[in-house]
Design a protein around this nucleic acid. Structure first.
Ligand SMILES: [Mn+2]
Ligand SMILES: [Mn+2]
Ligand SMILES: [Zn+2]
Ligand SMILES: [Zn+2]
Lengths: 146, 146
DNA sequence: CAGCATAAGACAACGGTTTTCATTTGCGGT
DNA sequence: ACCGCAAATGAAAACCGTTGTCTTATGCTG
């Protein structure tokens, strides 16, 4: 009943490339953008492989994932000291990590109080950065709820 | 140069039905589930119309939206006194509103500090409720980041 | 170097959502 | 009441990010 040496993940040229490209980015990137960047660099990697690798990284906690308004998954390497939360500019995509200790404590307390197991949390802030001026118009309302 | 009386949204049978069905739910529901419920009730509404109406309600702030792990949008009428945050069971979908004053304050402070305009936030908690027991296994790691 | 399980890649399929476009309908004006 | 028309509906197709399929390639271990 020997448990053989763990079947580790193989180190392939493609995975290394995806990892490298991911770290070369300074913002959140989509799988497709990453694939495009790799292709532009002359690196041959299948889009499917990019997706698979990112999914692996996500599952193992090596990347932080965010979903844009269209539902597209955006990835960013997770700092070694744990996950972060970010505020992302809706116009240009600029992302800044924010200090979230307070939220982390709040999450922990809620999780403890409500009797749920394995509570996970998603905290995302979006806005318009200083560079991207707003130019919003007013909007009327109609539905007097219920 | 008269500005005519505002072109308001029309009151249609379909929109009323969607609104009614939405309020009849006590949890988050997807557009498709709502459509199915309406159909089951003998109400004739096109799925497209359900999507369009929900999008309208979302834009006007009358519903809270959440996205499940598959990226599906789930809707819930927003209480009159403002939005809420919820903890949702990953197994059965049970959702509980949580007290989020602390987070709201945190968000407000961050928004003030970072210099972004129109900061919006998404805070979602997921877990496994008391009824749905976990049965998790361990998982090995590999990627020594970088 | 052999053997084999894992990974890559091309392509099809999937699923939720949106678009298209022909038809219907609310609603304001007369 | 009746027009007239912009707005809304609905069936079907398009869309698009993502995942599955299946064949071929390739790490890795012995
Ligand atoms: Mn956190
Ligand atoms: Mn809030
Ligand atoms: Zn910006
Ligand atoms: Zn549950």
């Amino acid at each position: 009943m020997h448990e053989r040496t763990r079947a580790e993940w193989r180190a392939t040229r493609q995975r290394a490339a995806v990892l490298r490209a991911l770290h070369a980015c300074d913002t959140f990137v989509s799988a497709q953008a990453l694939h495009a960047a790799l292709t532009a660099d002359g690196v041959t990697v299948g889009l499917t492989t990019v997706y698979r690798t990112l999914r692996l990284l996500e599952a193992s906690g090596h990347v932080d994932v965010v979903r844009d308004s269209d539902g597209e998954r955006l990835y960013r390497p997770r700092p070694d000291d744990g996950h972060r939360h970010y505020v992302v500019c809706r116009e240009c995509g600029l992302s800044l990590a924010v200090d979230s200790e307070e939220v982390e404590r709040w999450v922990a307390r809620i999780a403890r109080d409500i009797g749920f197991h394995a509570v996970d949390h998603t905290v995302e802030l979006t806005g318009v950065c200083a560079r991207c001026r707003p130019a919003s118009g007013g909007r009327r309302d109609q539905w007097s709820s219920q």
